[in-house]
Amino acid sequence: MNDVKGKQGQKWFYTDTVKDHFFNPRNILKTQEEVDKYKADGVGIVGSPACGDMMRIWIKMDKKHDRIKECKFQTFGCASAIASTSVLTVMVTENGGMKLDDALKLKPHDITNRLEGLPARKIHCSVLGDKALRAAINDYFRKSGQIDRIVEDGAKVIDKILKITDRDIEEAVLEGAHTFEQLQKKTKIGIQDKSCIPEAKELLETFKKKYFG
């Protein structure tokens, strides 16, 4: 198959694994009927149609062994978003299912590694996958009364005036902000609350290193 190129001319080079999971996504709930019938132990939703990516993940549990028995998904988004969620559902259900403690530790780069890489500007798609999974697991904890096990993605406010958090900075980095100017353009951080600029710059570097090496 021909590699599709971006508008700016750069090659996307989706790997064969990405293409495989995009063209043949695994573990899908195809119709509303299937969704209604599916007795999930936990459901997680992240993203929104407005921002271009949205995914919903359902899990069924092997409660005795604290392992994920089944994992289903639906994704609205581009090829890498669909492939990321598809491969994630495989990763957490293979070999008898992943232990929840391990599933909670899954990081975006575990997903991109399994996909044999994603183009840099597509990394944010894989982030949504592990967020949706954590949301589904937390939902299971909530429903099964294991409140103490819930792991919330805590966010720390950095810009005190505009209430911009470290998560917002992380998101902006994943969406392509690689300099402080770009970060400021996307988030408006530090325009009013100038005291946060040094911390914001530090976080920018940390997230850049985390996702782009």
Partner: peptide, 8 residues
């Protein structure tokens, strides 16, 4: 689509 643009 956002995914085919530089700015997302």
């Amino acid at each position: 689509s956002a995914c085919t643009s530089k700015t997302l």
